[in-house]
Design a protein around this nucleic acid. Structure first.
Lengths: 332, 332
DNA sequence: TGCTATAATGTGACCGGTCACAATTGTGAC
DNA sequence: GTCACAATTGTGACCGGTCACATTATAGCA
């Protein structure tokens, strides 16, 4: 309302009695401007309330300083933390982070087109790239980092939880408590972390000289309901498990509930451990033992990696694994 | 790597043997292009893999088709749902939604500067504007909508839960069950929804002819811990409440826990109701009675409102209230 | 067939910055 | 006081599209 159209560098230049180029120099803090001139220009900027038009800067420099984070959704707590971590890091380094949810492949493709092909973004963070076949749609023209999964090709960096280690840690914890028949409730088969946590589980069993029983391994979909159903099936076995390792907390909560509905005491009749340490984990009944992952750190690292690749395209791709931490509460 | 620099409309024009303006027409689907010509241009676009540079389009048209949603954080489930809803709606209408977390006023101010002053964004969604004094920083140069709060000035639209109605509904539910001493655990004093849910509570009590007791009203900070502590204090009263209305689910969960720790049976000794219907509400012990709010709808409506104001600046500002729905489970 | 009305296409300037380089000014040495 | 050289400052073109308008091709009709 106040000003019909906002002032440009040329307006500032006119007011300060210099050329637009000098104003540009002042904006960018380049040297080669006499202090007296700089002061004069800065005064003009203040008087006019001038702010550089970022779009025009992008246009001229060809660089948007914007990263895009694509996630299956924004509401999953783990994804949200990763995004927030990445956002912080990006902001600190002078970048923007645009985050968008791509619930399906079509949306993913659309977003890719709008962000990458139209040159709005300089780097890509992809959370959970193997949710479906979306990873096949990725262009190789833009620096990319996978979050929570190993890349299938070499040109992409990655940051993830040390899932094998986490699987091992959880399983060993249950073994240490004397359990020998340990049920495993997995995430979807096609996801990396499912496979890795599984192999950590198998590792730990083998290391303890315990023979694994494939019948104790169930596939869930990360939801509490799927955990509930998995336990129901496990309890129908002739020789049911005495402990459950659920690959995430939501499924573990489903297990707690299914156990309670059947009158099982936890941890006496059944020990339960999850992964994530979600916010209210300690408020369930009983408080959930779990493996905490530092999701913010994962996000921060991921942002760092993309920025590194954006700024030094030839630098080697990195693959980071962050450790999980055992949080013992009362469900084991 | 493949192409050093991506093709522009002039490259396409040369290939198709037309002028760049004709290519521009084809891109934008304007009519006044002979079908034969259009086909030829489209072929050239495909052959070269041309995609219009969005930044250049912004530059030329002055419109970015981008909205910004500022939220205190991205990890709170309610905020995330709102953002996802807004994102969906925006996408459907051909807009982008940039969402950023502004944990404090300084960040909020910075983001405002980067998004608004530098003309990257055309509309603003502000979630929880009264988290602190951030609302005083808002510029009046860009269409703005408050989400989850009433605006303090007329130029801003708003979408929120019908908090008064929700407070009334929750309280009446408890009254209907025969409770007369109903404890209220509020959110922070300075937030609108705290005040509104409180006045709904008072309304319902008055309507039922029950005299309210100010000693039964506690202030929390939305966290489970604060709910836990609030109940602890309420139970020390000479005449403690027989029911609790917590203004959100997290605090309600804290209440459940505090009650369990003291050996109170729920709902026999103490009835508990929350607000939000957060994802695992039905997995707590006992499953939580609560008021569901349609957060996606709130987000969608908010996006709609901003877009409306962006496209028709003179249209009147709207203020929407969405109803809450009672979900009765076993905590009452 | 010629003429006008209309459809289709092309041209130049412009959005608001930046870049590369040219022009000007200031400085120190002689 | 001059000159060479460095420090400042200014100029034109450009980024990749779009706009307004000029130009040309086509169609419609007498």
């Amino acid at each position: 309302m106040a000003e019909q159209s906002r002032p440009t560098i040329r307006d500032v230049a006119a007011r300060a009695g210099v050329s637009y180029q000098t104003v540009s120099r002042v904006i960018n803090g380049s040297d080669g401007v006499r202090p007296a001139t700089r002061v004069r220009v800065e005064a003009a900027i203040d008087e006019l309330g001038f702010r550089p038009n970022a779009i025009a800067q992008f246009m001229a420099t060809g660089s948007t300083h914007t990263l895009t984070c694509l996630s299956p959704n924004l509401t999953d707590y783990t994804f949200a933390c990763i995004i927030e971590g990445a956002e912080q890091e990006a902001r600190q380094q002078g970048y923007f982070l645009f985050s968008a949810s791509a619930p399906d492949e079509a949306t993913f493709d659309l977003l890719l087109d709008q962000m990458v092909a139209s040159r709005r973004t300089e780097g890509l963070l992809v959370i959970n790239p193997y949710a479906d076949r979306r990873f096949t749609l990725l262009p190789d023209t833009v620096p990319t980092v996978f979050v929570g999964a190993r890349p299938r090709e070499e040109s992409v960096g990655s940051v993830a939880l040390d899932d094998v280690g986490a699987g091992r840690l959880a399983t060993r914890h249950l073994l240490d408590l004397g359990h020998r028949r340990i049920g495993l409730i997995c995430g979807p088969d096609e996801e990396d972390c499912t496979q890795d946590r599984l192999s950590g589980y198998l590792d730990a069993l083998a290391a303890a000289g315990v023979t694994g029983d494939p019948g104790l391994i169930m596939e869930g979909d990360w939801s509490a309901t799927s955990g509930y159903q998995a336990l129901a099936r496990l309890l129908e076995l002739d020789s049911p498990p005495t402990a459950i390792f659920a690959q995430n907390d939501r499924m573990a909560v489903g297990v707690l509930r299914a156990a309670r509905d059947r009158g099982l005491r936890i941890p006496e009749d059944l020990a339960v451990i999850g992964v994530d340490d979600m916010p209210l984990a300690s408020y369930f009944d009983p408080p959930l033992t779990t493996l905490r992952q530092d999701l913010y750190a994962i996000g921060r690292q991921a942002a760092q990696l993309v920025i590194q690749t954006v700024e030094h395209p030839e630098s080697p791709r990195q693959h980071l694994l962050l450790p999980a931490e055992l949080v013992v509460r009362q469900s084991t």
